[in-house]
Design a binder for these strands. Structure first.
Length: 699
DNA sequence: TTTCTGTTCCAAAATGCGGT
DNA sequence: ACCGCATTTTGGAACAGAAA
């Protein structure tokens, strides 16, 4: 369609017919140039996507009663033409089933072109294809190399695995799978003002038709796999929510971001100089540093589970033994952080915000994954670079101990359900487990109070309990948590024996999973086991893990869907999902109302899947001008003072007066970001600042 | 114990080059 | 065309650090 008459004809035809579904296929362009990431991959600003051509295939259902037959309307609209755009805008509001292959970029390209498209009942054949082969050919699912001589290694490379995976979920493969031919897809976008040729239009319409056919055939495949209900209830509704989260993105303080980079650069240089002064030839090389530790006879202090380790936590404890240790630790950290892609390339979109990619079903358990940048992977102390724009606030809401609750309910363990419902399981277990090593005063505290006073113990217990549920072995517990083997075994048995139904359920997950070749999630989603991997040890571990982690992911997606729906049309928006937590951005005056409403919705979403549980949602809005870990809004400034700073650890108390009134200055100071002297290249060397504050850390 | 992204570093493969 | 040697590219293992 390139003119008003034909557009109106299409609209009238479609609006007056008994339409069962409309499939879409679009061609779009990026109005901003691509940027090259360090890895060599191209990065595009989602905000610059503009849909130009849109193919549409409407399936009009006949009626068995009057003998009318099914038929298709096929059309291609040239969205560059104003009258066509106008008519198409009306079509988009039709309450029918919409179908697309990989709808996320399509939605964004339509939004970018100015269409307010909220598809009613969207189905996505790409997402369905991902779900239908979840876990298969997954890069983590690759068998370990077998060291047998003379036997060539025939495993595909990781790159090939990734390629194969992309191929396996492509529209081309879907078409082949369901016995239809796809015309060639790859073609250059239209040049400025280039007219739409009939041949091109014909091919595009054919693609839309094929999407429809694939969807129909896939429906049967999904039923056979038992995942239709999951797709309809969770994945399909989530496609639009996820596309919007990406589209909205997060606001960042560019000045703070630049200050992080500059601070890393200067600190790394200063540390390198210091190390060179101590005789290091290539400061920062882990190898040379290890040799240094051996020469100094310090490697005995660097044991983690029996092996020589130079990880941050280890070095932190022996820092006082030699000045080079602290220097190396800081330098390594600065190089690592300073080299991250989000500091190398300006990832802000044309709207000035970051739009990390959120890959639906990116993880084999059904969780999302995130990249460019991976916000969940950014060191937690740097979170405050994500900020609220003027007049706005950020609230982070997270489910407390979601996996414990899900584990209890999935395996129907009354005792664990009761423990979950009555308080903090990790804290209660920590209180019992660490009883001997606590002071009198600490023993008198309630579990919740103890958790507040000694977060380190609770964190330790949390990691241990989760690891026990997911089948950690006593030897590994002993190494990882620095206890004796027998103590590790005792703790493991104590926990599992306290919850016998859980123990039986976990074992059943493995046994049944191996028989059926899949792990099952509460809503029906399945993670498949590659043929030949059945009964392997590492398969048993994820068969235990997936029903819990995957079910928690379902609850979380359900919550996001409900939040998105509830806040639609308001100024509140979801800006970031984090596995079990969500970051909301809302107007300053609404913070309390949004917090209450969102928490209630999240609890509701949880209970809709697990009615026996009384979930708790924790809200962090104590420093709502920036994203932070547990209210630690000052962590970014601490990083500027000492790049080796970490949140947490027992009894870290810092009283200081850095340069502008200290940490007590609160919101105004922090909102202003780092002080001017940190941005001034002529300011004092970073190293001097550390020296000045060396005494402040008393861990 | 699982998941993910993303880093460094080493070794093997590929490529380049001067010579026969 | 082939060899020997040096350099560059690539693949993958191991780590790190985020989440539960």
């Amino acid at each position: 369609m390139t003119d008003l008459d034909s557009a109106l004809t299409l609209r009238d035809a479609v609006c007056s017919a008994r339409v069962a579904a409309i499939a879409l296929h679009a061609e779009w362009r990026w109005t901003a140039p691509a940027k090259s990431l360090p890895g060599g991959v191209d990065w595009h600003d989602v905000r610059s996507a503009r849909a130009e051509l849109l193919a549409l295939c409407a399936w009009v259902a006949g009626d068995a009663g009057d003998g009318s037959r099914d038929f298709l309307y096929r059309a291609v609209l040239d969205l560059r033409i104003p009258v066509v755009r106008q008519v198409f805008g009306e079509l988009l509001r039709l309450p029918v089933r919409w179908v697309a292959h990989d709808a996320k970029p399509l939605l964004q390209a339509l939004w970018g072109a100015g269409f307010d498209f909220e598809p009613h009942q969207l189905a996505d054949t790409h997402i369905a294809a991902l779900a239908l082969q979840l876990g298969l050919g997954h890069k983590r699912a690759r068998p370990k190399r077998r060291d047998r001589k003379g036997e060539p290694d025939v495993r595909p490379s990781l790159f090939e695995v990734a390629q194969a995976h992309a191929q396996a979920t492509s529209l081309e493969t879907r078409c082949r799978e369901f016995g239809v031919d796809l015309p060639p897809l790859a073609r250059a976008p239209l040049a400025e003002g280039e007219p739409l040729e009939p041949e091109r239009a014909r091919q595009m319409a054919r693609v839309a038709e094929l999407v429809l056919e694939v969807w129909q055939a896939q429906f049967v495949a999904a039923a056979r796999a038992g995942i239709t209900s999951h797709l309809e209830r969770i994945e399909y509704p989530f496609v639009t929510v996820n596309a919007r989260i990406e589209w909205i993105g997060v606001h960042i303080a560019r000045r703070d971001r630049d200050a992080v980079k500059e601070s890393c650069r200067r600190a790394a240089n200063a540390m390198a100089d210091a190390l060179r002064g101590m005789g290091f030839t290539s400061p920062g090389s882990e190898q040379e540093f290890r040799q240094f530790l051996v020469r100094q006879k310090l490697e005995g202090h660097c044991k983690r589970g029996g092996t020589f380790s130079v990880e941050d936590e280890v070095l932190r404890e022996i820092e006082h033994l030699h000045p080079a240790i602290g220097h190396f630790r800081r330098m390594r950290r600065c190089i690592q952080i300073g080299g991250e892609p989000w500091l190398q390339v300006d990832l802000t979109g044309v709207d000035g915000r970051w739009h990390p990619e959120h890959r639906q079903l990116g993880a084999a358990t059904g969780r999302n994954s995130c990249s460019c940048p991976n916000l969940a992977g950014i060191s937690r102390i740097l979170r405050p670079v994500v900020t609220a724009p003027k007049g706005r606030t950020l609230i982070e809401l997270d489910y407390s101990q979601i996996e414990i609750g899900v584990a209890a309910a999935e395996h129907d363990d009354e005792a664990l359900i009761e423990a979950f419902n009555s308080g903090d399981v990790y804290a209660a277990t920590a209180k019992r487990h660490f009883h001997a090593s606590l002071s009198e005063a600490e023993r008198a505290l309630s579990a919740d109070e103890l958790a507040k006073r000694r977060p380190d113990l609770r964190d330790r217990m949390k990691t241990m309990i989760l690891a026990i549920i997911y089948n950690i072995q006593p030897t590994t517990i002993a190494a990882r948590f620095g206890v004796s083997r027998s103590e590790a075994e005792r703790e493991r048995n104590a926990f599992l024996d306290a919850y016998p139904a859980l123990k039986r359920g976990l074992e059943a997950s493995v046994a049944y999973g191996n028989v059926r070749g899949r792990a099952r999630v509460v809503s029906g989603l399945a993670r498949f086991v590659d043929e030949g991997d059945v009964d392997r040890h590492w398969v048993a571990n994820f068969l235990r893990n997936t029903p819990i982690q995957g079910s928690a992911a379902v609850v979380f997606k359900q919550a996001l869907i409900e939040l998105d729906r509830a806040f639609a049309g308001t100024s509140t928006m979801i800006v970031m999902p984090l596995h079990d937590a969500v970051l909301l951005e809302c107007d300053q005056g609404e913070i309390e109302a949004v917090r209450a409403r969102a928490a209630a919705l999240m609890e509701h979403a949880f209970r809709s899947w697990y009615p026996k549980l009384r979930p708790r949602v924790h809200a962090n809005c104590s420093a709502p001008w920036c994203w932070n870990k547990d209210g630690h809004a000052e962590s970014l400034r601490r990083f500027f003072v000492d790049p080796a700073y970490r949140i947490g650890g027992p009894g870290v108390v810092i009283e200081e007066d850095v340069s502008d009134g200290g940490l007590g200055a609160g919101l105004d100071t922090m909102a202003a970001g780092p002080s001017e002297e940190w941005l001034d290249p002529a300011a004092d060397p970073v190293a001097e600042m550390w020296d000045a504050h060396e005494g402040d850390r008393c861990s």
